[in-house]
Simulated assay, not measured.
Amino acid sequence: MIHIAICDDEPQQLTNAKELLIKYAHERPQYDIKTCSFIAPLELLSHVAEQGGFDILLLDVYMAGMLGTDAARELRHLGDGAEIIFLTTSREHALDAFEVDAAQYLVKPYTEDGLFAALDKIISRMNADQQNIITLKTSEGITRLTPRDVVFTETGRNNYQIIHTTQGKKLEVRMTASELFELLAQNKYFVRCGASLNLNLKYIRQISKDAILFDTGERLPYPYRAYQNLKKEFLRFQMFTED
Score class of each variant (00 low, 15 high):
T88V: 11
G168T: 08
T216Q: 04
T135V: 14
M175P: 03
E112V: 12
Y24H: 14
I133E: 09
L235R: 08
T146R: 10
A71F: 03
A211S: 14
Y227I: 03
K209Q: 14
K169I: 04
F190Y: 10
Y31L: 15
G217W: 06
L57K: 04
F54K: 00
P11M: 14
D9G: 06
Y62V: 10
Q167K: 15
G65F: 11
V191R: 12
F152W: 08
N200H: 10
G114P: 01
L145T: 02
Q12P: 00
T89V: 12
E140T: 13
Y224Q: 10
Q167P: 00
S37Y: 09
T155K: 11
L199Y: 01
L230T: 01
L75A: 05
Y105M: 03
L201Q: 12
F237N: 00
I133M: 12
E233Y: 08
E172K: 15
A64W: 07
K18L: 13
T111C: 05
I22E: 14
F54H: 02
M175G: 04
K188T: 12
T176G: 14
I212S: 04
I142R: 13
T153I: 05
K231G: 01
A128W: 10
R28I: 06
L230A: 03
M63N: 06
N127G: 09
E99K: 13
N158D: 10
I123Y: 02
F214E: 01
I204D: 02
P147G: 06
D120M: 09
R174D: 09
L220T: 04
N200S: 09
N200K: 05
L199E: 03
M1S: 14
Q51V: 02
D101N: 15
I134T: 03
F54L: 05
C7H: 04
L184S: 07
P221G: 06
Y110D: 01
G65V: 12
M63R: 03
Y110A: 03
S139C: 07
R192V: 10
A211P: 00
I6L: 09
Y203R: 01
K108V: 11
R144F: 11
A195P: 00
T165H: 05
G141F: 07
P41A: 12
F54R: 00
R192T: 14
N187V: 01
A195N: 13
M1L: 08
Y160W: 10
G168F: 05
G81F: 01
S178Q: 15
E182G: 11
K188R: 13
K232W: 06
N159L: 08
L213V: 14
Y227K: 03
L184F: 12
D113F: 12
D55S: 09
K34N: 13
H77R: 15
L75F: 07
F234Q: 02
I162C: 09
T69N: 07
R28Q: 15
P147D: 05
Q228H: 12
P29M: 07
E92T: 09
R76F: 07
L78M: 15
A128Q: 10
G68F: 08
Y189T: 13
L67T: 12
Q131A: 13
Q51P: 01
A71M: 03
D9E: 08
A71D: 00
G68V: 07
R148D: 10
Y222E: 00
Y160A: 03
E242I: 14
P109N: 05
E92Q: 11
R157D: 14
D9Q: 07
